[in-house]
C-alpha cells in the first residue's frame, strides 16, 4: 500500500518527479559507461575522479552561495575536469603501474577539499550531503543537466561504438589500424567527470561508484556478446536505480545509500541464482 502511495507522490510532487526522471537519465548514462569503465580497467580511476570532486565542490561552495547551483556545478566541473586531465595525462599507455599515483591523488584531493571546506565553507553547507547524495535536492536545472549529459554521452559512445570496443579489446591493433587512442582516452575521462559531477546529488561522491560499477559488472557476468553487455547494463542500471529511489521514498531512507544497497543486493542475488542454476545443470 505504502509503495502505491509512494508512486503517486512522484506524480503529485514536482521535486519527486525531478528526482525520478533525473535518476532515469543518469542511470542510463551510467549503464552505457559502466561496461567500458570495467573492461578498460579504469574502476580505480573512476573512484579517484569521484573523490576529487570534493575539492571542486569545496572551492565552489566557498566562492558561491548555495542559491547559485549552476555556478557551483560549473566550478566543480571545471576543477574536476582539470584534475581528471592531469590523471589521464599521467596514466596514458604507461608501462609502470599507475594505481599508486591514482591512490595518492585520490586521497590528496579529498583531503584538500575537506580542509578548504573546513576553512571557508563550514557554516554554508554540510559536507556529508556531498559524500552520500540527496536525491530530494535535485532541481529542475539538475534534471535539464542530466538530460543534457545523456544527449552528449549517448552519441559519443554509440556512434564510434566499434572504435571504443576495438580500442578496449585490442589496443595496439586498434592504434595501428588508425584509431586515435589518445583522443578516446581523454574523451572517456572527460565524459566520466561530467557524469560524476552531474550525479553528485543523486548518489554522492562516494556512492556514485556503485552506479558506475555494478551494472557493468552484472552485464559482463551474464552477457554472451558485446552488444548484449551494453543493453543488459543499461536495463539493469535503470531498473534498479528507479527501484532504489522508490524504496528510499517509501520508507524515508537516504536515497544514495538505498540505491547502492539495492544495486548490490540485485547483483549478489543474481550471482547466487546463477551459481545454483549452474550447479543444478551439472
Amino acid at each position: 500500500m505504502n509503495f502505491i502511495h509512494s508512486l503517486q507522490d512522484f506524480i503529485h510532487y514536482d521535486f519527486l518527479l525531478y528526482a525520478l526522471l533525473g535518476t532515469l537519465f543518469l542511470s542510463i548514462t551510467c549503464g552505457l559507461i559502466s561496461p567500458l569503465l570495467i573492461a578498460r580497467k579504469n574502476a580505480f580511476m573512476g573512484s579517484a575522479i569521484s573523490h576529487s570532486t570534493l575539492l571542486g565542490l569545496a572551492i565552489a561552495v566557498s566562492i558561491f552561495s548555495s542559491d547559485s547551483p549552476l555556478s557551483i556545478f560549473a566550478t566543480t566541473l571545471v576543477i574536476t575536469i582539470f584534475c581528471t586531465l592531469f590523471l589521464a595525462f599521467s596514466t596514458y599507455r604507461q608501462k609502470l603501474p599507475t594505481d599508486s599515483l591514482i591512490g595518492i591523488f585520490y586521497t590528496a584531493t579529498m583531503a584538500m577539499g575537506i580542509l578548504i571546506h573546513s576553512a571557508f565553507a563550514k557554516n554554508k553547507t554540510d559536507l556529508l550531503s556531498f559524500l552520500f547524495g540527496n536525491i530530494l535536492l535535485l532541481t529542475k536545472e539538475d534534471l535539464i543537466l542530466s538530460i543534457g549529459l545523456l544527449a552528449i554521452t549517448a552519441p559519443l559512445i554509440i556512434i564510434p561504438f566499434k572504435k571504443w570496443l576495438f580500442l578496449t579489446y585490442d589496443e595496439e591493433g586498434a592504434i595501428t589500424s588508425g584509431v586515435n587512442a589518445k583522443f578516446y582516452h581523454y574523451l572517456f575521462f572527460i565524459l566520466l567527470s561530467l557524469l560524476i559531477v552531474t550525479s553528485i546529488k543523486l548518489a554522492g561522491t562516494i556512492l556514485i561508484e556503485t552506479l558506475l560499477l555494478v551494472p557493468g559488472f552484472f552485464a559482463l557476468k551474464f552477457a554472451s556478446n558485446v552488444r548484449q553487455t551494453f543493453i543488459i547494463s543499461v536495463l539493469f542500471s535503470t531498473f534498479f536505480a528507479i527501484l532504489g529511489i522508490l524504496i528510499a521514498n517509501t520508507y524515508g531512507l537516504p536515497s544514495g545509500a538505498t540505491l547502492a544497497v539495492v544495486l548490490f543486493l540485485a547483483l549478489m542475488l543474481s550471482l547466487l541464482l546463477k551459481t545454483i542454476y549452474t550447479w543444478i545443470r551439472k
Binding site: A39, F166, Y169, D170, G173, L220, N225, V226
Partner: peptide, 21 residues
C-alpha cells in the same frame, strides 16, 4: 597475450570492429 579478455568478444564482432574503420 595483449588481448583484453574482460569483454565477451566473438570472432565476427572483432572482425567487424576492424572492418568498420
Amino acid at each position: 597475450s595483449e588481448l583484453n579478455t574482460i569483454l565477451p568478444v566473438k570472432v565476427n564482432e572483432y572482425m567487424d570492429f576492424a572492418r568498420s574503420l
